[in-house]
């Protein structure tokens, strides 16, 4: 079936098997291999992308369901030489080793920081109401949908904490 997708600001028309996941459409039909397939079942988070600004597992949705949506992948966040601050933070704090979960971590963190700014509580928030302060525990809980088997969690939390503080200070 013919599907039109809006990815990183570009309109893409594809002829796809309806079974094609959004992740496979990105990786195998559009050459956007930054989004990774680690489990194909929403259990690792390596395929995390943004749809209309919200983070989702792109492996657990059909490409056909996302016409008219605004899709952002890691390729739309920054590139070498023009990295986003969060990406630079991951490099500086060594928030990765093999690099395979990394684009998913960064996409997830990008949206997560905004979720916290909107005041969304988490399971570890002391109160369900009021502003959210992104403590290490808050960051860790909110990032627990992104597995890292190299276990660079210490650097990941540091990079996100720094990016969130920078974002806050810029206001």
């Amino acid at each position: 079936m013919e599907i039109t997708l809006d990815i990183n600001g570009d309109r893409q028309v594809l002829d796809l098997d309806p079974r094609t996941s959004l992740l496979d459409a990105l990786r195998h039909h559009l050459g956007l291999t930054g989004s990774k397939k680690g489990c194909d079942h929403g259990q690792c988070g390596a395929c995390t992308i943004l749809v209309n600004g919200r983070r989702i597992n792109s492996c657990l949705t059909l490409a056909a369901m996302h016409e008219d949506d605004e899709i952002t992948t890691i390729e739309g966040i920054g590139r070498p030489g023009h990295l986003a601050p969060l990406q630079e933070g991951f490099v500086r704090h060594d928030g990765f080793q093999c690099g395979y979960c990394t684009p998913g971590q960064i996409m997830s963190a990008t949206a997560m920081i905004e979720e916290a700014r909107e005041g969304w509580p988490s399971y570890v928030s002391p109160s369900l109401e009021g502003d959210i302060e992104l403590s290490d525990e808050e960051i860790a809980e909110r990032m627990s949908g992104n597995l890292c088997r190299c276990a660079a969690y210490t650097g990941i939390v540091q990079a996100i904490r720094e990016a969130a503080e920078t974002r806050e200070a810029a206001e």
């Binding site: 990786r27 890691i74 390729e75 590139r79 990406q87 991951f90 690099g99």
Partner: peptide, 21 residues
């Protein structure tokens, strides 16, 4: 020092085995 391949990894440009078309 930072990993030299870091910018490629954090931007999704490091290409892994299954990612060649």
């Amino acid at each position: 020092q930072d990993r030299p391949e870091g910018p490629l990894k954090v931007s999704g440009r490091a290409v892994y085995a299954a990612e060649h078309e």
